[in-house]
Design a protein around this nucleic acid. Sequence first.
DNA 1: CGGTGTGTTGAG
DNA 2: TCAACACACCGG
Length: 201
Amino acid sequence: MVEDDSSIVFDTNFTVLAAESLDSGNCNYEHRAGKRARRDHDWSFVRFKGVVPQQNGHWGAQIYANNQRIWLGTFKSEREAAMAYDSAAIKLRSGDTHRNFPWTDLNIREPEFQSLYSTEDVLNMIRDSSYQAKLKDFVKILSEKDEKPTTNLNKKLVHGDTQFSCMQLFQKELTPSDVGKLNRLVIPKKYAVKYFPPIRG
DNA sequence: CGGTGTGTTGAG
DNA sequence: TCAACACACCGG
């Protein structure tokens, strides 16, 4: 099924949009067309920051922070890898140092999405490719949230100096095992996978 | 065995 | 900081 670029995670609109606004300055889209690397292997026309070709035709993503390289994983398409870099850059770098793709109304939410997780969590989500889906959910829930501001479930809490905004992620009815001998509440796997950081340290 | 990501180098 | 390149290593 040849999904090359277009069909990945984030909806296609994003990819297309990003791809077509090349000329609109600021995004770090170096058209280094023609710039060849040391060996003249066919790839080597790497256009994206933090993206490195793999011998099997896949693409690796990496970012440098505090004097060391952080590996972000390998991806099937060049763009997935480039997006991985952009996402990691938000957490690791200050401000928006040259990104691969321009900001859109969707990825503009990334900073606040990432603020819900630790750096390691974000990196792990990027690495296991669950990042995009979770970000998408986050944005979706956000939009649902301000569609009905009347809902009482979403309120703001103020704790000391810091402000936290909360939203309902999911709902679950108590089951026998929740009130059984084991003193624990079971979170459905579906939601656990969806809203919790991935395993691995 | 294929694929991953680290070691390492040289350039910007 | 960064990507190019080589290849040790790891899970299947």
